[in-house]
Design a protein around this nucleic acid. Sequence first.
DNA 1: ACCCAGGAAATTC
DNA 2: GAATTTCATGGG
Length: 268
Amino acid sequence: MIIENITDFDTEQTLDCGQAFRWTKQEDGTFKGIAGGKAVSIGLVENSIIIDGADDTDKEFWTHYLDLDLDYRNIRKSLSQMHPILNEAAQFAPGIRILNQDPWEALCSFIISQNNNIPRIKGIVERLCREFGDKITEECYTFPNAEIIAQLSPEDLQPIRAGFRARYIIDGARKVADGEIDLEKIRTMEINDARKELMKITGVGIKVADCTLLYGLHRLDCFPLDVWMKRAMSTLFPDVSPDFFGEYAGIAQQYIFHYSRMHPELFL
DNA sequence: ACCCAGGAAATTC
DNA sequence: GAATTTCATGGG
């Protein structure tokens, strides 16, 4: 499948910028991964996105997943005018987009992310899918839904080697599966109520809540503050508070996070 | 051996 | 209540 006339999009900047953990770069430069129950590889050639493994009936799904209907050029322009260093960060990776991931997958992935590093997060997520997801092909498995995980015990999760996070994953799954927490209601809640609701889960604090809101529920005003972002804010934006960035603060966050991760020398 | 990793819970002061 | 310690695992 081909989606034409694409601007302001880059596969690596979007799929390998720390917002999702199931995309891996292949030798030909495309990214393979699984979303919406489909295993595909995504490449960009000139102004066309080529998705191998999908057909035109999936076009709507992938257009939405990659957030292609939002005018990032305009948003980037307006964010860039707010601050010279944000302008620098946005120019550095103008092809970032915030994915529309499955909310439960984002919640679960960012529970796993705590006090952890990105390669290991990917490993745990991969093992979780292999053990408990549905097989698509020999090498590709779906992300297991909350109902499946809710029935497990921490011992069942032992093989994925999530450590102390195992019981957090199960607590989240149970609260989502039995409806105690309704992610789709949270999608439209006032932001502080939404945070509080997510933080009913053991193992979800403000940072994981904000990541779930931004990356799983597409709340673009959320601005997750992790160790990188705290460091970036205090050195690059000493006089700026996150809400300064306004309704698209989350996109600004992703520009700054990616820029900081690619320039560690700024923080020695 | 030691330190850190897209934090948060448990404990202590 | 605020500050510190602990949590499980793997890599540098």
